[in-house]
Design a protein around this nucleic acid. Structure first.
Ligand SMILES: [Mn+2]
Ligand SMILES: [Mn+2]
Ligand SMILES: [Zn+2]
Ligand SMILES: [Zn+2]
Lengths: 121, 121
DNA sequence: AAGCTAATGCGAACGAGTTGCAACAGTCAA
DNA sequence: TTGACTGTTGCAACTCGTTCGCATTAGCTT
């Protein structure tokens, strides 16, 4: 376990938003100037492959990351400010499983993203 | 309306899968050698901005396109062969709206993708 | 302390998509 | 038929997030 990985892991653990690789790099670099962007990318890939963190590809190119070991949840993305809100609907999860099952499949993973704006009423 | 756009539109209309830009380029080029990849990209963006076609970003980088004027549906993606199956669940749509509404938002668009494998039983 | 392995920083390469630009095609008015 | 105007094209060069090759280095194990 190298120093760089420790720092990146610490930054990830303390993140309560959904930072992208570059943002994580800057936060890590602020704590330890020996962290490079390459290593951030490599570490993120490693952790995502192991399932230790979650990689999301919202609608804007770069990937954003969810810190470790959270229970499953889906995302509601406010379009104007780009804010990401988490939610979980047991009923939706259940219905998804039913849809898949009726077609002869079982769900391995899924992605549900609601792009929203504040409702005016 | 140029010849190139006519060809690209024809290819799109005849596509019953979810081809990416490069695949659409090859299909169009086969019909008319004067179609370039740039024009395919430009035409796809134009059509997507107008809402005439749908752009999807499944989990593999490049965008895939749904041909025109279909009613809304979501996707079930079989992992092994990469096959894409369409479905629509009125109940899920409804629950999504409710979740958003309870948080003070209204849905502008959403993305629901189920990554599945054939269930063995 | 030596040796081995795995991880690092750097810069170059990648791939999907976009863009600047000069050539070109349609459209319409004279 | 000509000419001018406008929008579209192909091509090559670019962008941007991410990955890779490689020589160097850090961290274990002995
Ligand atoms: Mn999240
Ligand atoms: Mn579809
Ligand atoms: Zn879910
Ligand atoms: Zn839907």
């Amino acid at each position: 376990m190298t120093e760089q990985r420790k720092v990146i892991l610490r930054v990830l653990a303390n993140a309560d938003d959904h930072p992208d690789a570059n943002e994580l790099y800057h936060r890590a670099y602020a704590l330890d100037g020996s962290v490079s962007l390459s290593t951030v990318y490599r570490t993120l890939r490693l952790l995502a492959d192991r399932g230790a963190i979650q990689r999301h590809a919202f609608e804007e190119g770069r990937a954003r990351f969810d810190n470790a070991d959270r229970e499953h949840h889906d995302h509601l993305i406010a379009i104007d400010p780009g804010q990401v809100i988490e939610f979980r609907s047991e009923k939706i999860e259940e219905l998804q499983a039913r849809v898949a099952s009726e077609l002869g499949y079982e769900i391995v993973r899924h992605k549900l993203e609601l792009y929203v704006r504040k409702s005016r009423d």
